[in-house]
């Protein structure tokens, strides 16, 4: 066993242990921290595989920023996970079978890093040999990402931008309008309406009709539209995580 292989195996074992720990723990705070560790170990693994740029990204994003964002989320939703209602036996069996078939299916894959792999025979050698002449950029990864395949990188930049558009649409502009159940009717409530305002609104609307509802009578978003049975994903509550 060469030293590199030894490091490989140690890192993979660490990765497996971290992965299982993430699944097992019911404390989401611990899970987030473990996920950060998972990213860090993967980054190590990428370094050993000579993919330094990837390792760098994994460390910065996976272990760094994502952890912070996940913690930010935990601050909003709490860090306790519900106990799962189902036993994980069936999923486990499925995963084992699928995994087994996959291992069998990929057993003829070319060995990692061998020079005569198809992956190292076609486009890659061209980049290695000609990219410096064509771009004068010593880091082949940079020249591929930012020049040969810069259209892809443009797309990735757009993906990142899309992500923030999505998050801002949902989070940064106050709560979304809600459909709430009131007095047998479903109504849409503009965001930013407090319960007191709502109660006042109802009172105004039902004036003369007798007995406006109490402020607490408003039940934001609870239950499903009675006419719409079957649309609410069943068991979603118990399946979180």
């Amino acid at each position: 066993m060469t030293p590199v292989e030894f490091v490989d195996i140690v890192l993979l074992i660490l990765l497996a242990i971290t992965g299982i720990a993430v699944i097992r723990t019911r404390n989401l705070f611990a899970a987030v921290m473990l996920a950060g560790i998972y990213s860090l170990v993967s980054a190590g693994l990428f370094v050993v595989m000579d993919a330094v740029d990837v390792a760098f990204t994994e460390a910065a994003v996976g272990a760094g920023i994502s952890t912070v964002l996940l913690l930010g989320t935990l601050a909003l939703v709490g860090d306790k996970e519900h106990k799962p209602q189902h036993t994980p036996i069936l999923p486990l069996i499925v995963v084992l079978i699928t995994g087994g078939v996959l291992i069998y299916g990929t057993s003829q894959m070319p060995p990692f890093g061998a020079a005569d792999n198809p992956a190292n025979q076609h486009v890659a050698p061209y980049y290695l040999e000609d990219s410096y002449d064509e771009t004068h950029v010593p880091n082949v990864v940079t020249s591929v990402l930012a020049s040969y395949r810069s259209y892809d990188t443009m797309g990735e930049t757009a993906v990142v931008f899309t992500a923030v558009v999505g998050v801002l649409l949902l989070l940064a502009r106050g709560p979304l309008p809600q459909r709430i159940h009131h007095d047998g009717e479903w109504i849409t409530v503009r965001p930013g309406t407090t319960r007191e305002e709502l109660a006042a609104q109802f009172k105004a609307e039902t004036e003369g009709g007798g007995g406006g509802p109490e402020g607490g009578g408003v039940d934001p978003g609870g239950g499903a539209d009675p006419e719409d049975r079957g649309d609410t994903p069943s068991g979603e509550g118990g399946e979180r995580g």
């Binding site: 499925v94 995963v95 079957g230 609410t232 069943s234």
Partner: peptide, 12 residues
Amino acid sequence: SWPSGSMVLWVA
């Protein structure tokens, strides 16, 4: 509607 977990299991 199916729970998300069942959907993913189904995919597997």
